[in-house]
């Protein structure tokens, strides 16, 4: 196997690159901060990092995430009779700017798990790197084994909670969907580590806009077609009412047969509803 810098320092916990030991040994006190070799995972030539230069006095200290930059909006997900469905649009917003319009916020993790992300998209890409390492390790074992959706969910819960403990959060709400022992699994975890499983989940605005629809119409034994119709309807409502969304969606399905993430598609919309034409008519006091 290729040598790689550890993403999981035993000293600092999951999701933090760092030293293998928490305690400074006498050696590290006597000879502090030697330049260390970095081996890029992409296969580029290794190089040295001089810590004394990085931490030189007068230089700005490294900073933790205070605010997200490029963000994704709601991810919607629900279970149905034989699996799980996740959907989101493909927008990466830079503040109010629609900066990246084809950002795939729903990704396959392995043959029975899919991850959807809202929040800071660079953090999401970092999280995908962590998961890819785990998936690669599974592949190298060559025994057909892989992490279950619940294991991936538990792992991500610990990563996000650990990073919150470091006051350096990964600014995401993640949705993990998959199938496990023939049963659908759907879980979510937020940036400070709040996590739960449910039959239907929506992050961000979706929790206000889509989940009331889910609560009204969802049942765990609904057919795939019904589930797809429901999630399309919910996506459309989110698109109508959420400023930070576009009419370009992706839908992932996880069943016993495997994982499929759809090509981006658009939904038919109507803007000539009476209430849309004169929005202030029913809101006295606005303009």
């Amino acid at each position: 196997m290729l040598a790689r810098p550890p993403s999981h320092s035993p000293a600092l916990g999951p999701g933090c690159a760092g030293p293998p030991l928490a305690e400074a040994s006498s050696v590290s006190i006597q000879y502090p901060a030697q330049p260390t070799a970095q081996v890029p995972t992409c296969g580029a030539a290794s190089f040295l990092v001089d810590h004394n230069a990085v931490n030189a006095p007068g230089r700005d200290p490294s900073q933790h995430t205070q605010m997200p930059y490029v963000t994704g909006s709601s991810v919607l997900a629900l279970t149905f009779k034989d699996g799980v469905m996740l959907a989101s649009d493909t927008l990466g917003s830079y503040g109010s700017t629609k900066r990246y319009k084809s950002f795939e916020r729903i990704r396959k993790v392995n043959d029975r798990t899919v991850l959807g992300a809202s929040g800071e998209l660079s953090d999401f890409q970092y999280i995908m790197n962590l998961l890819d390492e785990l998936t690669t390790d599974d592949f190298c074992e060559d025994d057909g084994g892989m992490l279950s959706p619940r294991e991936i969910w538990s792992y991500l819960c610990r990563v996000l909670y650990n990073r919150r403990n470091k006051q350096d959060p990964l600014w995401n709400s993640l949705v993990i969907g998959g199938i496990e022992h023939g049963k659908p699994f759907l879980g979510t975890v937020g940036m400070i580590g709040t996590h739960y499983t449910d039959d239907h989940i929506a992050t961000g605005f979706g929790n206000m806009l889509a989940r009331p629809l889910f609560r009204e119409k969802h049942s765990p034994d609904m057919s795939e077609a019904d589930a797809e119709a429901l999630i399309h309807e919910a996506l459309k409502v989110c698109y109508y009412r959420d400023k930070q969304s576009i009419n370009k969606f992706q839908l992932a399905k996880i069943t016993e047969a495997g994982v499929s993430v759809s090509e981006p598609f658009a939904l038919p919309t109507r803007w000539d509803y009476k209430h849309f034409e004169n929005p202030s008519a029913n809101a006295v006091g606005t303009w």
Binding site: Q66, M67, R164, N165, Q167, P169, W171, G190, M191, I192, T194
Partner: peptide, 12 residues
Amino acid sequence: IQHPSWSPYDEN
């Protein structure tokens, strides 16, 4: 001056 805009705690 720092502007931390998040809290590590949530009231659930």
